[in-house]
Write a protein that binds this DNA or RNA. Structure first.
Lengths: 229, 229
DNA sequence: ACCTGAACACCGTTCAAGT
DNA sequence: ACCTGAACACCGTTCAAGT
């Protein structure tokens, strides 16, 4: 305990401004939303000049990428906890994952928008962001693959089925967050998410009842598609 | 033909600046994206001072709402054309509607973002926007209801099933537009959209095979939810 | 090494003044 | 009635200068 962080009004040095900026940014985005998020305001709240953040982040987008990264870490954590406290059996586990995703979105709408919205033009140029977001999506692919091994989910490329599942819950989350659907009651949000995931699960189950369509079915290649997140 | 629009460099009067601003805005948003969309730039391209737009639109959001309205009109038109040139039988019609929705999104990504994104805080305060966007969603509800009458789609509240269907295609569209899924080949976009709608259709078909879950099933009320668009 | 202050080129919005 | 020009309070970003 000989060394301690310089506290109080340490002339101009900040103990760990990098970390402080991310935390201020997280609070600001939760309070003011993505549109009220300003690099100058972050600096103001952190008690430094508006130029100081540029010693730690290349530009506004880089700070936003750090914020998004924290978001994916939190989302991933919640999805992992679902796996821990739930029976990992296809229908219930699958539904719980979807519900958790939608709940995260409506509880942290601005954060959710930063994670998936257009503010970060190309997420792949931020390696740590790319890694953790990719890891989050991987949880879903694994859940699908496990269901396939248990014969509870139809055969086929796991990632393609996972993408359809992701689209379902992401769509519902987006419509709620963007106020396209005016639902605020948390219980009703959960009900909508359960309905959506259950309906999708029907589609995931068996290929036997499917209508055949010319070309481009689920079993086909689609090999070149890449998941950015 | 006695009266004609004042053309060329009419001193400062613009024939129909209101209309001109919307059209310039549409072009600008297609060229530069939603982030590069600036009221001052719109004015510049329209050849008027940066204060002139305020005689025709209350603020930036009001012009954005007009742009969004045009978008919904175009989307609605495309969905109507699907109904005209397709057999209106549940599986094929349903898939074609979903594919058209996703195609519109990837062909006009910035426009799509304005229509559904966070730029327009509350769309319901713009009556004409609200009307046309609501009308677009109504097409989907009607398609579901028709499927129910033909016994091709399970019974239940049409709007709740329509919401799940909307979420599916909206989610895929959003993931593509926001580059979360790196697919650029149009044929592959169509393939993904067909896969997603076909999987969803399985869930829409019959309630018979569904897993029963405690509470909050598809058949339950959910009555208070309102669709904003 | 890390931060500040002034500066630059932009915004959205308002408002008196022009025709 | 419709538009302009100057003004205000903001941005993001850069850069010489400070300690």
């Amino acid at each position: 305990m000989f060394k301690r962080a310089t506290k109080g009004r340490s002339s101009y040095h900040h103990g760990d401004l990098h970390r402080a900026l991310i935390e201020v940014a997280l609070r600001l985005i939760a309070e003011e939303g993505a549109s009220g998020f300003t690099l100058r305001e972050v600096a103001r709240r952190a008690g430094v000049s508006h130029a100081a953040p540029y010693r730690h982040f290349a530009d506004k987008m880089a700070l936003l990428a750090a914020v998004a990264e924290e978001g994916f870490r939190a989302l991933r954590q919640r999805m992992l906890e679902v796996g821990i406290r739930m029976p990992v059996e296809p229908p219930a586990h699958f539904r719980a994952l979807g519900v958790e995703y939608v709940r995260f979105a409506v509880e942290h709408p601005a954060h959710f928008r930063v994670m998936f919205g257009p503010d970060i033009i190309d997420p792949t140029i931020y390696p740590t962001l790319h890694e953790v977001s990719h890891g989050t999506f991987t949880l879903l692919i694994e859940a699908i693959a496990a269901g396939q091994q248990a014969q509870a989910i139809r055969p086929g490329e796991s990632w393609a089925l996972a993408l359809a599942a992701w689209a379902q819950v992401h769509g519902l989350a987006t419509l709620l967050v963007d106020h396209c659907v005016a639902v605020t009651d948390p219980a009703q949000v959960v009900a909508l998410a359960e309905q959506a995931t259950d309906m999708l699960y029907e589609g995931l189950r068996s290929e036997g009842t499917r209508h055949k369509v010319k070309g481009t079915g689920v079993g086909e290649p689609l090999a070149e598609a890449k998941i950015a997140y």
